[in-house]
């Protein structure tokens, strides 16, 4: 799409939306939010970028292909479930790490890792579809 307004605004919008999607991802730890919805917001950021700059630019910006991104996400999510094996717990049991310098920190856990995996799967899968459609047109 060749719109000067969209092309001018998209870098700002993309940065802000990605930031917001990460906020939503981390907020999901104890409040509404999480990897799935965060991933949708993150994907919408790159969708905006694709509309403004085209599929090739998005591919460059992502570095990895979207489908590989989804695969890495799935690997992270699966591996986060495996961590409980080391502690003799059931599959997917959450494991927390409270570091000595700041025991209040609540984000260092396999649960967040799982959510990051979900985030990447959602971003990767949706972008694979959007870029595929953009290539067709």
């Amino acid at each position: 799409m060749n719109s000067i307004i969209l092309r001018t605004a998209s870098p700002f919008l993309v940065g802000l939306t990605v930031l917001f999607s990460i906020y939503v991802l981390l907020r999901g730890h104890n409040e509404p939010g999480g990897g799935f919805i965060g991933g949708l917001i993150g994907a919408s950021a790159f969708a905006t970028y694709t509309l403004a700059e085209g599929a090739a630019a998005t591919r460059r910006a992502l570095v990895l292909s979207p489908i590989a991104l989804a695969g890495i996400g799935l690997l992270i999510a699966g591996a986060s479930g495996l961590a409980s094996l080391l502690f003799g717990d059931a599959f997917l049991t959450g494991q927390w790490w409270f570091p000595a310098f700041n025991p209040e920190l609540k984000y260092l856990s396999t649960v967040v890792l799982f959510d990051i995996g979900v985030y990447l799967v959602v971003v990767g899968a949706i972008l694979a579809i959007i870029i595929g459609l953009e290539d067709e047109t």
């Binding site: 292909s65 489908i67 590989a68 695969g71 890495i72 996400g73 799935l74 690997l75 699966g78 599959f91």
Partner: peptide
């Protein structure tokens, strides 16, 4: 867990090696 987890991890790995 293994009969379910191993193929899903392999599938994810194979997806990363797309192409």
């Amino acid at each position: 867990v293994w009969p379910i987890l191993l193929p899903v991890l392999a599938s994810a790995l194979a997806v990363v090696a797309w192409g």
